[in-house]
Amino acid sequence: MIRVALLVAGKDLRIEARSRVLASQVLPFGVMALVLAGLALGPARAGHSGAAPGLFYLVLLLVTLLAVGRSQSLERAAGTRASVATLGLDPAGVFLGKSAALALELVTMGLVLEALAVVMLHVALAGALVALPSVVVTLATLAAAGTLYGAIVGEGPVASTLLPVLALPAFAPLLIAGERAFSAALSRQAEARWWVITLVALAAYLAVGVLAYGVLEDS
């Protein structure tokens, strides 16, 4: 399982390194969404707003949706799907590998967007650094959830519109937990219970993904 996970993660990351789809399309989208968030707040509130962590996470959710779509599209071409299927890869390994690659990609984009939030939304740098571990874990959870939902949605013609409907309700608690943890970090408060939400969700998605990915692939 781990061998397959490493193989698949390496393949997905290598494809991103070659195609730069996330770097050249999804990340700029995230940057623009952050700018739009500032514009939506209005000139008076765009800086030093208490809403900054929430907006930051809202942008991350949108970025996640696009990144999941991209991750799933690698195997979406009918021919690729067929020939990869005949490799008979362990589905749990495929799930973990795709999740891990997606997590790494999301964390990379998340770091850039967090730095931008510090600059543009005037989020305190010290607080943003304290919040960093929670951002990383939340993004890893989003990656696992996204990969699972991507597989549930499958490769049909409506996949791109179906994914947000299915995934966003599941992303909601992660948005709340991430935002709360970030806000707590900014005001130097304890944030233990938000970690619980994120870690429980992470464990749940990893467990379901490992168990159910094969069932989804086979259907």
Partner: peptide, 12 residues
């Protein structure tokens, strides 16, 4: 998965 999410959503 939705059912697993229900308590997570509720508590959050």
């Amino acid at each position: 998965v939705a059912a697993i999410n229900v308590p997570i959503i509720h508590f959050s």
